[in-house]
């Protein structure tokens, strides 16, 4: 039973065909990889899934419901969390506040609750704070919770972005190059972390990554995108031996 289906999705900017007839579906609880050369349209697919771009043709469905025409924040509320290739944290806010922000749509305090600081307000705030700290603990940055997010080292910023996306309690987590800019040790640590989180929360993860070691290591199924078209899908072994994939990455004689 696929819970996210992308059907004949095409996206064109004028004459530029960013995605052409992309078809794939994601099953719950599986870790997927999306790879492809630079400019293949991987991040574009993320942007379509999260509603930043509306597809020119085709459909995207989450649990049978079409996401086309939905606003980005509505899609986020439906349970798709994401991180960005170029980190987009709330830099002036503290690490803890960054994560607390993601509980916005699941909390219910009204303006009056805030102004009079009612019991509902304080219990909800406490709850959000505890949950956020738990997420930071999972990502191993709990001790930095009072530091402004912009002051974190790069690797920790990546972790914070994942923690923030998890605050939405997503069914589907999209990670856009989570290991970009990390050293091998950090990458290994993050790889294990992503796998642990995915198993522990039983969520679906779709990750874009150029670090093939990471992808081949943890992804249960991999999609390969070349020039806006899906050319191959399957487990790591299949991908590594596929002619079209090798052609796209290494060229042909």
């Amino acid at each position: 039973m696929a819970f996210l289906e992308v059907e004949n999705m095409s996206l064109e900017f004028g004459g530029v065909k960013a995605c052409q007839n992309v078809n794939f579906s994601l099953e719950p609880g599986i870790l997927y990889g999306l790879i492809g050369p630079n400019g293949a349209g991987k991040s574009t697919i993320f942007n379509v899934l999260t509603g930043i771009y509306a597809p020119t043709r085709g459909d995207v469905r989450l649990g049978g419901e079409s996401l086309v025409g939905k606003k980005p924040f509505e899609i986020a509320q439906k349970g798709i969390g994401r991180t960005f290739q170029n980190i987009r944290l709330f830099k002036e806010l503290t690490v803890l506040e960054n994560v607390m922000t993601s509980f916005y749509s699941s909390s219910h305090t009204t303006l009056a609750d805030m102004v009079f600081q009612t019991k509902k307000f304080s219990s909800e705030e406490d709850e959000i704070r505890v949950k956020s700290l738990e997420l930071l603990d999972v990502m191993g940055i709990k001790d930095l919770s009072d530091v402004p997010a912009g002051g974190l080292p790069y690797g920790k910023q990546r972790k914070l972005e994942i923690a923030r996306a998890l605050g939405l309690n997503p069914k589907l987590l999209l990670l856009d190059e989570p290991a970009a800019g990390l050293n091998p040790a950090e990458t290994r640590e993050l790889t294990n972390l992503i796998r642990d989180i995915q198993k522990a929360r039983n969520i679906t993860v779709l990750l874009i990554e150029h670090d093939m070691g990471l992808v081949m290591n943890i992804c249960e199924k991999i999609y390969v995108l070349v020039q806006g078209q899906l050319v191959c899908e399957g487990v790591a072994d299949v991908i590594q031996n596929d002619k079209r994939v090798i052609e796209a990455y290494l060229g042909v004689d």
Partner: peptide
């Protein structure tokens, strides 16, 4: 009143929008 609005979820959403509107969107904030 303004301090308390800032410290609640509404204030956090405001600050998030100022810092990065796109990321705020992805947090389910309209």
């Amino acid at each position: 009143v303004i301090k308390r609005i800032r410290d609640g979820r509404l204030g956090r959403a405001m600050l998030a929008i100022k810092e990065n509107e796109m990321a705020a969107n992805m947090m389910g904030i309209n």
